[in-house]
Simulated scan of single mutants.
Amino acid sequence: MFTVVAGIDENENRATAIADAIESLPGSDETSVVLVHSFTDNPEGASIDQIGAVRRVKERLESDGIDVRLDEQSGDPATTLLEAAADHDADLVAVGARERSPAGKAVFGSVTQSVILEGDRSVLVCTVDDFE
């Protein structure tokens, strides 16, 4: 079994790009996917099941016969995604790309950049045609 850990935020376009990429992997019918959402600020106590993008990706992948599990985290998204990849012994980490200016990356950081540079697993960067 091939295991993919996918970081899903609230953005539906990035979530769709990740689902597209996972579905296009060779042998996707033998793939297990763990969808990870990291809450950095959650005063109302929402759960991963309440994130629309997570629900849609889960339903879509399951309808294709892909085994999907959810992993709710709290904290820095890059750190929690890398920890989840280790916990689930992932073969691949999938992240959605987000367009940022060089200054924006320097000031705010980049989850994708951190996952690529700090991780010890292969990373699939999924892009959307229409950045927001």
Rank of each mutant, 00 (worst) to 15 (best):
G45R: 01
R69K: 11
R56M: 08
R60L: 04
N42V: 04
E44V: 02
R55F: 05
S47W: 06
L61N: 14
R56I: 03
V54Q: 10
E44C: 00
G45C: 01
L61H: 12
I51E: 09
E59K: 02
N42Y: 09
D67I: 01
G52P: 15
S63N: 04
V68P: 04
G52C: 13
L61W: 13
R60K: 14
I48E: 01
V54Y: 11
G52L: 15
D41V: 00
E62K: 10
I51N: 04
A53D: 11
D64Q: 15
K58N: 14
N42L: 07
E62M: 09
T40M: 14
S63I: 00
G52Y: 10
L61C: 13
I51L: 03
D64L: 15
R69L: 09
I51V: 14
P43I: 04
S63D: 12
Q50L: 08
R56D: 15
R55S: 13
A53Q: 09
S63L: 00
I66A: 11
G65I: 05
E44T: 07
S47F: 05
E62S: 12
R69F: 07
N42T: 09
K58D: 14
G45P: 06
L61P: 14
R60G: 10
D67Y: 03
T40C: 08
G45L: 01
V57S: 01
S63E: 08
R60F: 03
V68N: 10
E59P: 03
R69I: 01
R55P: 10
I51G: 06
D64C: 06
S47Y: 06
V54K: 06
I48A: 01
E62C: 07
P43F: 02
P43S: 06
P43V: 06
S47V: 10
E59F: 02
G65N: 05
E44R: 00
D41T: 01
V54R: 08
D67P: 00
K58C: 09
I51C: 03
D64Y: 12
V54D: 11
D49A: 09
L61I: 08
S47H: 13
D49N: 14
G52E: 15
G65T: 08
P43T: 07
N42C: 06
D67N: 10
V54M: 09
A46L: 11
E44N: 08
D49I: 04
E62H: 05
R69C: 04
N42A: 12
R56H: 11
Q50R: 10
I51A: 07
D41I: 00
E44G: 00
V54P: 10
S47N: 13
R69E: 15
A53E: 11
G65D: 03
G45N: 05
D64V: 01
I51R: 03
P43E: 12
D41R: 02
L70V: 10
K58S: 13
V57D: 02
I51D: 07
